[in-house]
Design a protein around this nucleic acid. Structure first.
Lengths: 346, 346
DNA sequence: CTGAAAGCGCTTACAG
DNA sequence: CTGAAAGCGCTTACAG
């Protein structure tokens, strides 16, 4: 996987996956003719040129790099949960490595906190493409990349910045599935802790939650909704609020796994057992989720696949291609573990 | 379209500012010899190699990648916990980024599982230096890097491969501190779950644990030791064994946080409360440690600083420097949280 | 426009 | 360890 295409022992001295002599044979012309096409020289008939160009492209011959441009895709993070960032990076690397691109990593949190530029230094390094895995991109940033001629792909952007291709997970269906799972178990008083609802993803999850209740004919009780910022403290503090109510929920849908972790703590502080007294669902499926006590029922985001998809788009753009669509949404999966169970009989 | 913009410029087909035939003449050797040096192959005398290398450098031959020599440090992982890998990467990036180097990432687990080469593809990309963050490096691998002229720095290598500079944490003192903390709380029956003891780090931790007992005059009970492989299952299964004994330990020192996580599960399965009935310490301080219920008392490895140090060494080597020492050991810190308490009165 | 032939720079296989 | 010779992939110069 990673880097395949490198497995061969001896490096082939040609640029594509076939020598030009073979390309020539396939095109029914002589090697010199292919050479002329490859180097943009004149003296080749229009039909011949088109035929040869198609073959060259099919066999991995790309326009030669502008001098100084690196065969590198840079992935930019901003304060992302390390385990998630890593999974994304891995997905990017799988795709990029196979095509002989290096994957660059940087975290711009400090730069941004310090009020520094983060776009310029990136453009200066002349990567083949940039993937951002955080939400703070402004339309202005997008323009800078465009001006620098460097393709940009955004993973899970906060807002809808039309010109930048985006990759994310289907948050709405994920939250719908988690909520349905709780409804199926028999829960009727279901709380929800959301992320910042002007985030696209947080909003989509909240909407999925509400839709599930609607479909099931369960009225939505506003006193069971709390808004946080996708943090552990949300789960702990807002969770404690929910549990302290006169009619507390028997289950809570959390906006992400970190909030669920916080809710574990809040529940324990009240002497509630999970899942016997309280069912909890998360969102993300961070790597430790199966190892929590109890293991967390959550909605898996396919971060590796998200990274891989972003890399495919980025490479396509870097090599002069166009995209079929501007927004790619990958499926989420409900992973049922030990933190959900039927509500206690009352 | 392919290769546009190169038609007019008559590009010389060689990489430096003189063809290798001329370099050969200047060095008083034959072209094949220069070719061998250029490609890091064997079969060239030491004197000859040095003379040719100097000439190549003088005439603009950067190992491969003529233009824009890859200002890139590549970090190679192998099945490392994502959150740890990310912290290391961040440390590397901080140092490398400040010097305008890109940080490349790759994970060679699948390659190795598939029995493929992982060194060659890396050498092919000609990074300025390589940092390995896993243990499987053989002396042979080290030689390959040396032959390719690419500096190599190892993070936490399993074995003592003398020629490769290594960076790690002080595992012995860390385990000593954790064990002392439990002794200070009043524990006397302290169990231990170790990693594979032919790992340098696992062995050092076990030794630190034993040293603390010795200093405190507490005899070491072999029935309280279990050996695992640094996994969650170790903590769960070996932990269950320990707890099932007639005289179970009142505290357990785990070889890493993952094992501690497993032990949480094993304790819960027996109805034991942490820390009331059982104290647990981990090692690493993974990012979720403060968010577990209860928050985990553990020994923090300064992964960010380890990465940063490795990057400093790598850059020093890449720029032709020499190192003052071959092995760098950074300090660990005991972080006391909620999983340790005095033993229950009996 | 096209390609046989010659040429170029580098690498490989092998004999010394 | 070393290099003469053969080879390889591509390009160039030129004849048709």
């Amino acid at each position: 996987m990673i880097d395949e295409g490198h497995g061969r022992q001896s490096r082939k001295p040609w640029r594509g996956d076939l020598p030009i002599a073979t390309i020539a044979e396939l095109a029914g012309v002589s090697p010199p003719t292919v050479s002329k096409v490859l180097n943009g020289r004149g003296g080749v008939g229009e039909q011949t040129r088109l035929r040869v160009e198609a073959l060259l492209r099919d066999h991995g011959y790309r326009r030669r790099q502008a001098s100084g441009a690196a065969r590198c895709i840079e992935v930019v993070f901003h304060q992302m949960l390390p385990s998630i960032a890593m999974e994304i990076l891995r997905g990017v690397q799988e795709v990029a490595g196979a095509r002989d691109y290096t994957v660059g990593f940087s975290d711009v949190r400090r730069r941004i906190l310090a009020g520094q530029q983060w776009v310029e230094p990136l453009l200066m390094r002349q990567p083949a493409a940039v993937i951002t895995a955080f939400s703070l991109i402004t339309a202005d940033d997008g323009k800078r990349f465009a001006a620098g001629g460097i393709p940009l792909v955004a993973i899970d952007p906060t807002s809808d910045l039309s010109p930048t291709p985006a990759v994310g997970a289907n948050n709405w269906s994920g939250a719908l599935a988690a909520t349905r799972h709780l409804l199926d178990l028999g829960h009727r008083r279901i709380g929800v802790i959301t992320g910042p609802v002007n985030d696209l993803s947080a909003r989509a999850r909240l909407d999925g939650f509400r839709a599930a209740l609607d479909y099931a004919g369960v009225p939505f009780d506003e006193t069971l909704e709390r808004r946080g910022v996708f943090s552990f403290d949300d789960g702990n503090e807002l969770g404690a609020e929910l549990l302290a109510q006169d009619a507390p929920p028997s289950a809570v849908v959390c906006g992400n796994d970190l909030q669920a972790l916080g809710l574990y703590t809040a529940a324990r502080a009240r002497g509630l057992r999970i899942p016997e007294d309280l069912s909890v669902t998360g969102f993300d499926d961070i790597d430790h989720a199966p190892w929590l006590t109890p293991p967390l029922t959550t909605v898996r985001q396919p971060f590796g696949e998200i990274g891989a998809t972003a890399a495919r788009l980025a490479l396509a753009l870097a090599e002069g291609g166009r995209l079929a669509q501007e927004r790619y949404e990958l499926g989420t999966t409900l992973v049922v573990r030990g933190s959900t169970a039927p509500p206690a009989a009352r």
